[in-house]
C-alpha cells in the first residue's frame, strides 16, 4: 500500500478535529497545523477536506464558530467545541479503542 498508508480511515477526521478543539478554539489552518504536528506528518490529510468536516460537525452541534482576529490582525473564523461535542469525542474515543483492539485481535489471529 506504500504511499497511501497515511490515509485516514473514514470518520476519523471528525474525531481528530474534535480532539484538536478540545484544548482551545482554533481556526481551520490552526487545526491543520495541529493535526500535522501531532501525527508527526504520518497522517496526511487533504487540507481542504477539513472544511466539509468542520461544516458537518457544526451541523451536528458539536462545534460552533465565530469570526475573530489573528495575532497578525487578520480576520479568521474560529471554531469552538461544545459540551455535546466533548461528549461525542469521549464516546468516539471509547469506540475507537474497542475497534482498534478488535482489529488487533483479528490481525494477530493465525490462520486455522
Amino acid at each position: 500500500m506504500g504511499k497511501e498508508s497515511g490515509d485516514l480511515i473514514p470518520g476519523t477526521l471528525d474525531m481528530l478535529v474534535l480532539k484538536a478543539l478540545q484544548l482551545e478554539p482554533m481556526h481551520g489552518w490552526g487545526i491543520t497545523e495541529r493535526i500535522e504536528q501531532w501525527s508527526k506528518n504520518v497522517l496526511s490529510i487533504n487540507q481542504g477536506s477539513l472544511y466539509p468536516s468542520l461544516y458537518r460537525l457544526q451541523r451536528q452541534g458539536w462545534i460552533t464558530s465565530d469570526w475573530g482576529v489573528t495575532e497578525n490582525g487578520r480576520r479568521a473564523r474560529y471554531y469552538q467545541i461544545t459540551r455535546s461535542g466533548k461528549k461525542q469525542l469521549a464516546e468516539e474515543q471509547r469506540n475507537w479503542k474497542r475497534l482498534s483492539q478488535a482489529v488487533d485481535v483479528i490481525l494477530e489471529m493465525t490462520a486455522p
Binding site: 487540507q47 481542504g48 477536506s49 472544511y51 466539509p52 461544516y55 451541523r59
Partner: peptide, 20 residues
C-alpha cells in the same frame, strides 16, 4: 496542491451544512 480542489471542498461543505 496540499489544500486539494477548492471548488470540490466548497461543494462538499455546502452539502455538509445542509440539514440531513
Amino acid at each position: 496542491v496540499s489544500f486539494g480542489g477548492v471548488e470540490r471542498f466548497k461543494e462538499e461543505s455546502r452539502r455538509e451544512s445542509r440539514p440531513r
